[in-house]
C-alpha cells in the first residue's frame, strides 16, 4: 500500500530549507532596504550636461561678489567621510557612554508580533523553506509563486 503515502512525506527530503544564518542575512537586507534613498537609477545619468545651456535662473550680469565662493565640489573633497568612518571615529573620540551608539533604543520587553508577509494581517504559520510568515493557504500559494526562495542570496 505504498501508493497511499502522503505527498508531503514523500517529497520531504527534497525541499530546500534555508538555514538560520541565511534567514538572518535576508532579514538584515530587508532592514537595510528601508534606508535607501532611491530604488531606481539617476534619470539624468546618461545626460551630458553642457555648460553653455542657459538656465532659467541665469541673469546676464556677472556675479559681483568680492570673495570667490568655493564650489560645492571643494567641500565634498574637503570633508569626505563615510557614515561608517564617522561612527568609528566617534567610538574613539567619545568611548564612554552616552554617545551615538549607546543612545540606541534597547530591545522591547514585549513579544514580537507576526504579520502575514503577503496580506499584512496577523499570521499563525511559518513557511518551512524560507521562514516567512503567512496566514492562510491562499497567501501561502501567492508566497510560493512569487517570493519564496526566488531571490536567494
Amino acid at each position: 500500500m505504498s501508493a497511499r503515502e502522503s505527498g508531503r512525506v514523500k517529497d520531504g527530503g527534497k525541499t530546500r530549507v534555508l538555514d538560520d544564518a541565511a534567514r538572518k542575512r535576508r532579514a538584515r537586507k530587508a532592514v537595510e532596504a528601508l534606508e535607501q534613498d532611491n530604488f531606481h537609477e539617476d534619470p539624468h545619468a546618461d545626460l551630458v550636461m553642457s555648460k553653455k545651456i542657459p538656465k532659467f535662473a541665469d541673469s546676464n550680469e556677472k556675479p559681483t561678489r568680492k570673495k570667490k565662493a568655493r564650489s560645492a565640489d571643494y567641500y565634498k573633497m574637503r570633508f569626505r567621510k563615510s557614515f561608517a568612518q564617522l561612527v568609528e571615529e566617534d567610538a574613539n573620540f567619545r568611548p564612554e557612554p552616552p554617545n551615538y551608539l549607546s543612545a540606541q533604543a534597547p530591545p522591547s520587553k514585549f513579544p514580537e508580533r507576526h504579520f502575514c508577509a503577503i496580506c499584512g494581517f496577523l499570521s499563525k504559520y511559518t513557511c518551512i523553506p524560507c521562514g516567512a510568515r503567512y496566514c492562510s493557504v491562499r497567501c501561502l500559494g501567492t508566497h510560493l509563486d512569487t517570493r519564496c526562495l526566488k531571490w536567494t542570496a
Binding site: A30, V31, L34, A105, P106, S108, K109, E112, F115
Partner: peptide, 18 residues
Amino acid sequence: HPSDVGIPQMGIPEAIMH
C-alpha cells in the same frame, strides 16, 4: 513596534518610560 519590521528596538511609549 519597530519589531514589526525586524528592527529590535523599543517603541516610542516604552522608550519614554525607559
